[in-house]
């Protein structure tokens, strides 16, 4: 798991390995699991419309499949340039 910008601040971690239950098969299910890790995680994922996700460095959404070993990143809408 990777967190960027204010999601890193809210979760309190930039990077962590997690072992979700076997039934977690999508980003949406992963988010539900991550919210149970700490109050900071719950706060970070409170308003999902402000959160973007990438799975293995490609943009995804709540329905994108995830499996063990994937690199999943959460971050706000981008503001470069």
């Amino acid at each position: 798991m990777l967190y960027f910008a204010w999601l890193k601040a809210k979760t309190g971690v930039g990077e962590e390995d997690v072992a979700p239950p076997a039934e977690v098969a999508t980003v949406g299910q992963l988010v539900a699991f991550l919210k149970t890790r700490s109050p900071g995680h719950a706060a970070a994922f409170e308003v999902m419309s402000t959160v973007r996700v990438a799975v293995n460095q490609d943009y995804g959404n709540l329905d994108t499949p995830v499996k063990a070993g994937d690199e999943v990143a959460f971050f706000p809408p981008v503001t470069g340039g």
């Binding site: 960027f4 910008a5 990143a73 971050f75 706000p76 809408p77 503001t79 470069g80 340039g81």
Partner: peptide
């Protein structure tokens, strides 16, 4: 496309404190 797809995030340092820039 870069401004809406490349994963960069700006935090502005102002006299009132730091603030993450929101997407426009």
């Amino acid at each position: 496309w870069l401004k809406t797809k490349a994963p960069f995030w700006k935090v502005e340092h102002t006299p009132e404190g730091d603030a993450w820039v929101e997407a426009k």
